[in-house]
Amino acid sequence: MVGLLQAQATQEGYTLTALPGVRLLRSDRPLARTPVLYDPGIVIVCQGVKRGYMGAKVYQYDAQHYLAVSVPVP
């Protein structure tokens, strides 16, 4: 799976796909904590780990855990 995604996302940053509303994010290094607003959707991490922070709560998702967002959340 990782090899297939690397072939689609050849450089860091967002890559649009042929599927409407589906995009890939590639990062080859840790990213600093940045405030974001998640729109409704699903985030699937295929390699590595992603952490989201809301107040003192830490949400971690990785290749074994996904994030599903049903309403916009910071």
Rank of each mutant, 00 (worst) to 15 (best):
G3P: 09
L4R: 02
L4Y: 04
L5I: 02
L5Q: 01
L5G: 00
Q6P: 06
Q6F: 07
Q6S: 03
A7M: 10
Q8I: 10
Q8N: 02
A9M: 09
T10D: 04
T10C: 04
T10H: 12
T10A: 08
Q11P: 11
G13S: 07
G13Q: 09
Y14S: 07
L16F: 05
T17Q: 08
T17I: 06
A18Q: 14
A18W: 07
A18I: 08
A18K: 14
A18D: 15
L19H: 15
P20W: 03
P20K: 07
P20Q: 10
G21V: 12
V22K: 11
L24V: 03
L24T: 06
L25N: 15
L25I: 12
L25R: 14
R26I: 00
S27L: 06
D28Q: 12
D28I: 13
D28T: 13
D28F: 06
R29I: 01
R29L: 02
P30N: 00
P30K: 00
L31D: 00
R33Q: 14
R33D: 13
T34F: 04
P35E: 05
P35T: 07
P35G: 06
V36L: 06
V36T: 15
L37N: 11
L37E: 15
Y38A: 07
Y38N: 12
Y38W: 15
Y38R: 08
Y38C: 07
D39N: 03
P40L: 03
P40C: 01
G41R: 11
G41N: 07
G41W: 06
I42N: 05
I42Q: 12
I42S: 05
V43M: 13
I44R: 11
V45M: 04
C46K: 03
C46Q: 05
C46I: 06
C46E: 03
Q47C: 01
Q47T: 00
G48K: 01
G48W: 00
G48T: 02
V49F: 04
V49P: 00
V49H: 08
V49M: 09
K50T: 04
K50E: 09
K50I: 11
K50Y: 08
R51V: 02
R51P: 00
G52K: 04
G52Y: 07
G52A: 12
G52R: 00
G52S: 08
G52F: 14
Y53T: 09
Y53C: 14
Y53D: 11
M54N: 15
M54Q: 13
M54R: 14
M54G: 14
G55T: 01
G55I: 01
A56C: 03
A56P: 06
K57H: 09
K57Q: 11
K57Y: 12
V58F: 02
V58T: 15
V58K: 09
V58L: 15
Y59N: 05
Y59R: 03
Y59D: 06
Y61D: 09
Y61S: 08
A63Q: 09
A63N: 02
A63W: 01
Q64Y: 10
Q64T: 11
Q64I: 04
Y66C: 01
Y66F: 08
L67H: 00
L67M: 04
A68H: 14
A68S: 13
A68Y: 14
A68M: 13
V69T: 09
V69K: 05
P72G: 02
V73G: 03
V73I: 10
V73E: 12
V73N: 06
P74I: 09
